[in-house]
Simulated assay, not measured.
Amino acid sequence: MRIAVQPEPFDQAEALRGFGGTAGAIVTFTGVVRDDTGRMQALELEHYPGMTERAITAIAGKAQARWSLSDVLVIHRYGRLAVGEQIMMVATAARHRREAFEAAEFLMDFLKSRAPFWKKEIGPDGQSWVAAKDSDEDALRRW
């Protein structure tokens, strides 16, 4: 298992080098900063070092145990990120594809709602904190 919370961009191929061992399936997801309003210039993410890594490690540990994953990777960036920049990556490795896919979805749903990051949208008219969405909470209920 590898968890990284960092301000720097990451290289997907480099991050996956040696990942998964002898797993039969590896699933990856990379999220990018999107602009749903057409006016956002950047997204700024804040976190508490130590607390954030512990929370993500706990979530990843639950996924690893539930789906018997052979490997888990979570990279999450913080700081000021422009629209289109990579914000995070999840990779799961399992014996079979179903477990790898389900574990990746589980991680995404829990990271979106439970990882302690605070997000602020920055645009031409100023900045505003991003509120939690009901749809994100709804996604957790299936797990």
Score class of each variant (00 low, 15 high):
105 E>N: 12
17 R>D: 11
113 S>G: 15
114 R>C: 14
90 V>H: 13
107 L>Y: 11
24 G>N: 06
117 F>G: 07
109 D>T: 10
134 D>Q: 13
31 G>Q: 01
20 G>M: 03
101 F>R: 01
99 E>M: 10
25 A>Q: 05
41 Q>N: 11
80 R>Y: 15
134 D>S: 13
53 E>P: 07
122 I>Q: 12
94 A>F: 14
49 P>C: 00
122 I>S: 08
64 Q>I: 05
128 S>P: 12
41 Q>I: 10
45 L>E: 04
101 F>W: 13
137 E>G: 15
30 T>I: 02
113 S>E: 06
91 A>Q: 06
58 A>G: 15
4 A>F: 13
18 G>P: 09
120 K>R: 09
46 E>I: 01
7 P>E: 00
63 A>R: 10
54 R>I: 01
44 E>I: 04
124 P>Y: 01
73 L>F: 10
113 S>W: 06
119 K>N: 02
50 G>C: 02
116 P>W: 02
112 K>W: 15
81 L>K: 01
127 Q>G: 14
96 H>L: 08
123 G>F: 14
113 S>L: 02
68 S>R: 09
102 E>W: 08
132 A>D: 15
112 K>Y: 05
12 Q>D: 12
75 I>R: 03
34 R>I: 05
118 W>K: 04
22 T>W: 11
89 M>F: 03
42 A>K: 10
16 L>W: 07
98 R>I: 07
59 I>E: 08
140 L>C: 09
81 L>T: 03
11 D>F: 14
135 S>G: 13
13 A>E: 10
32 V>K: 01
128 S>L: 04
67 W>F: 07
1 M>R: 01
116 P>A: 04
13 A>Q: 08
50 G>Y: 06
96 H>K: 00
36 D>Q: 08
35 D>Y: 12
68 S>Y: 11
13 A>S: 15
33 V>T: 03
56 I>Y: 08
94 A>H: 14
133 K>P: 11
25 A>K: 09
138 D>V: 09
110 F>H: 14
94 A>C: 15
14 E>I: 12
129 W>R: 02
63 A>G: 11
43 L>R: 05
90 V>S: 04
121 E>V: 01
117 F>E: 06
30 T>F: 15
82 A>R: 14
3 I>D: 02
56 I>F: 11
1 M>A: 13
58 A>D: 12
109 D>V: 03
103 A>P: 15
4 A>I: 13
48 Y>N: 01
34 R>Y: 13
72 V>Q: 00
15 A>K: 11
118 W>G: 12
95 R>Q: 14
58 A>R: 14
89 M>S: 09
65 A>K: 06
143 W>R: 02
63 A>P: 15
91 A>K: 05
49 P>W: 00
65 A>T: 11
88 M>Q: 05
96 H>D: 06
45 L>D: 02
136 D>A: 02
